[in-house]
């Protein structure tokens, strides 16, 4: 009974891992620019690794293989986000920008969007407060 349950649980984890892995690969292949590609790869890499290695751990049972799988998972948990961060930093430092948009324009747009949303939220909170006093 327990064996059957473990078998199905590991199959489910492996299936989920395959799904996330394929999603990330399609994202890396199809997304239009470097930073969105990095988002697709970086997010799915860690999760898919976690799911697949968990599935393998359930298959392995209590043994040395379980310990080694745990070591691999721990190591990938530390290195995968670090590699993503280093990649983004390197791209930023070597002046890789999004196509047809300069850094200054980006910053200006971001600041304008921020100030306008801040004003909107202030207005909305004021409206809520006045509504509250009326109610």
């Amino acid at each position: 009974m327990i064996d059957l349950l473990l078998h199905y649980a590991s199959g489910l984890l492996l299936l989920l891992g395959c799904f996330f892995m394929l999603t990330g690969a399609v994202g890396v292949l199809r997304f239009p620019d470097f930073y969105s590609r990095m988002h697709a790869a970086g997010v799915t890499d860690t999760l898919a690794t976690f799911l697949i290695i968990s599935g393998l751990m359930l298959t392995a049972g209590w043994s040395l293989a379980l310990f080694k799988l745990a070591l691999i998972m721990l190591f990938i948990f530390f290195t995968s986000p670090t590699a993503s961060h280093a990649l983004a930093r390197s791209a930023q430092l070597s002046d890789l920008r999004l196509a047809q948009v300069s850094a200054e324009e980006n910053l200006d747009e971001a600041l304008q969007a921020q100030s306008s949303t801040a004003q909107d939220s202030e207005l909305s909170t004021e409206a809520e407060i006045t509504d509250g006093t009326r109610a």
Binding site: M21, G24, A25, V28, F34, R37, M38, A41, D45, A48, T49, I52, I53, I72, I76, S80, A83, L87, S90, A91, S94, L96
Partner: peptide
């Protein structure tokens, strides 16, 4: 770009471990 290639190679390496 070179960074796209490094990203793909990093992903390839992780998948090789798996």
């Amino acid at each position: 770009t070179i960074h796209d290639r490094i990203l793909a190679v990093n992903m390839f390496g992780t998948k090789t471990v798996l």
